[in-house]
């Protein structure tokens, strides 16, 4: 676990420093720019899906789905970040309670 934490720390720091140090023309390559734009989109979408609809090796729909649905509505209404996150937790917790 500690090794993985160090790897993540070094990797993330190196990326930050590289951004400040690399020549600006890297960004002018259109394929690099598009891929770099899309990586967070793909990873975040995959993280959401796995986080909400998987339980170990199986797929499932439970209270987390309701939490995510709340988050969608809150984001459509331009609610602040904390309202989205805490509200989603509250909805899931309430459903488990009843």
């Amino acid at each position: 676990m500690w090794l993985a934490i160090l790897v993540a720390a070094l990797g993330c720091y190196a990326l930050k420093l590289a951004g400040l140090s690399l020549p600006q023309r890297v960004l002018s390559n259109p394929v690099v720019e598009r891929v770099a734009d899309l990586i967070p989109v793909a990873l975040l979408a995959a993280l959401i899906a796995v986080q909400v609809w998987s339980a170990g090796p199986s797929l499932t729909i439970d209270a987390r789905t309701a939490g995510l649905a709340f988050a969608v509505v809150a984001l459509l209404l331009r609610a602040p970040f904390l309202v989205v996150v805490i509200g989603a937790a509250a909805v899931a917790a309430l459903i488990r309670l009843v």
Partner: peptide, 16 residues
């Protein structure tokens, strides 16, 4: 019990 597992998905969605 506090829905924290659902909060993570919501946080990722807000970032996305």
């Amino acid at each position: 019990n506090y829905g924290l597992d659902a909060a993570v998905g919501a946080a990722f969605l807000a970032l996305l």
